Amino acid sequence: MDPVHFAARDRADITGRADLDALLRRFYTAAFADPQIGPFFTEIAGTRLDIHMPRITDFWERALFRSAEYQRNAFAPHAALHSVEPMTAEHFGRWVQLWHATIDGLHAGPNAERAKAQGERIAVAMLKRLSGGRLDTSGDGTGFIPLAAVELRAAA
């Protein structure tokens, strides 16, 4: 068996809030330290992980399992950040790359795949709203697809 399939077999799927909490802590540790997107969290937003974690875990628990009460506006903080420092397709692509890598490092299965796909959809939707409905359609005219996600899939 090739190493990719062997490794995937050894990783459990995301099954609930405890898995999401561990996944999100690892993801945000990487995101905060990332030179490309980290400053959005640390310098611009001044995000405190201890305050952010319950909210974002509620968000992902609702997104994946429809089992949490997330009643906040997820777009508003991103719009506020964007007004201070514009977020580009490259920023969202890096977010997706880190999201995929974090999930792939911990989990494999249908929920893990759904979390990656949902992350891509969220990135595209956020970028589209932040850019006033206009996506960069340079190239083949299909709109924004996070390049980092495509490269990550090609490497797998």
Rank of each mutant, 00 (worst) to 15 (best):
Q71G: 09
F40D: 07
R11Y: 02
D50N: 11
S83D: 11
H52N: 04
P35Q: 14
M1C: 09
G119M: 01
R134H: 09
L49R: 09
A7T: 12
A79W: 09
W99R: 01
P35D: 13
E85I: 08
A31N: 02
E151G: 05
A117N: 05
V84N: 10
L130E: 03
G93A: 09
I122Q: 03
E90N: 14
L147E: 11
Y70I: 13
K116N: 05
F6A: 14
G38C: 11
A45E: 05
F40L: 13
T57Y: 04
L152C: 05
Q36G: 15
I37A: 12
G16E: 04
P77V: 00
A12P: 10
D104N: 04
P39F: 03
A80C: 02
I44V: 13
P86Y: 01
A155T: 15
T42H: 10
M87A: 08
D140L: 09
A31H: 02
R48M: 10
A112Q: 02
R25M: 13
R134D: 07
R114T: 03
L130H: 05
A149N: 07
I103H: 11
R94L: 12
L127G: 07
A89H: 14
A149C: 05
G16Y: 02
R11E: 05
A63W: 10
A12H: 11
Y70N: 09
P146W: 05
L81S: 02
L98F: 02
W95P: 05
R26V: 06
R134G: 04
V96M: 02
G139Q: 07
I145L: 11
I103N: 10
L20S: 13
P77T: 00
P146D: 04
S67A: 15
A74N: 08
T47S: 03
A148P: 12
I37P: 15
S83N: 11
D21N: 12
N111R: 06
D140K: 12
P35R: 15
R17L: 07
A8G: 14
R9H: 15
A117V: 08
H82E: 03
D13R: 01
V96G: 00
H78M: 00
G132N: 10
R17M: 06
G46V: 03
A108D: 10
I103V: 15
L81M: 04
E61H: 12
H107K: 06
R121E: 06
T42F: 04
I51N: 09
I122T: 06
H78W: 00
F32L: 13
G109M: 00
Y28M: 00
R17P: 10
E43C: 05
A22L: 12
T42I: 11
T142L: 14
F92N: 06
P77S: 00
I145T: 14
R153M: 03
L106A: 03
A22M: 10
M126D: 00
A149V: 05
F92G: 05
A148G: 15
A149Q: 06
L81C: 01
V4C: 13
